[in-house]
Design a binder for these strands. Sequence first.
DNA 1: AATACGGGGTA
DNA 2: TACCCAGTATT
Length: 299
Amino acid sequence: MLQQTRVEAVIPFYLAFLARFPDAASLAAAPEAEVLAAWAGLGYYSRARNLRRAAEILATVAPAGYEEILCLPGVGPYTAAALASIALGQPWAAVDGNVLRVVSRLTNDPSEIGSGATKRRFTETAQGLLSPSRPGDFNQAMMELGATVCLPTNPRCLLCPVAQFCAARQAGTQAQLPVKLGKPAARRLELHLLRCSVGSSTYLVKRSGEESRLADFWELPQKPAEPPFEVQLECTFSHQIVNDRFQVHVWGATLPVRPDLPGGGNWFEPDARKEIPVTTITRKALTRRNLNKSVQTPC
DNA sequence: AATACGGGGTA
DNA sequence: TACCCAGTATT
């Protein structure tokens, strides 16, 4: 439950869940739908399915250590280390997002925090700091430090119990760590979809692939009325993603029909321009699933 | 290495 | 609004 979910958000779900499924056997015996119902509101529902599958295993065998715990579905390096250290007292550093941030500051290391190489190195650092006699307490202390003191922005160094060991604090760089690779200011992508009307009918039009020799032309997915006909593009789109925003640019265009080209006359050259407004849609509202229907709304 | 997966809190 | 959260699985 704690994977990518704040402790405060988890607690009520955790209590209700344990009341309903007090042990591995009862969870393993429960229908998946019932488990999902108890999970409702927590998000990341594959965690619930994985947890039930793990319970099926745990009802039979008890894993002996990190490597075996890691084999359970839904258990990755962090969770395996947390379980091995807290439940079994074994010396594995549990490295979550908090610990990555704490280590980046303790060592004043400007490496990009999202890369796999950096995570591996920071994990080794945490492993070296780990208390072998109290690995569970150490791991929880590191995470708690990140959650309450070594905050993402405005770390509270004056309250920090390990400020005297912190390289970033000495260098005064704590506010600039950890370093996150910024996404490009604007990724521009082609939308490959637009709408046109033929007479009173409206059709979707898509651009053919770049690798095609017809890359610069637009294609009617369904064959419209028999040629000859006139095609008037009402508008066309392009979109770009700026940070978490999905912007759709809409502009008008008129395209001449090219019956002389391959495709039975269903090809024509783009002739666009004059950008008019910009519609902004949040990325959450524009997943791959509903892309097709969403992009039609601005038109 | 990138992405999908959720819902909620915060600056 | 943009980022983050006691990450993992999949591509």
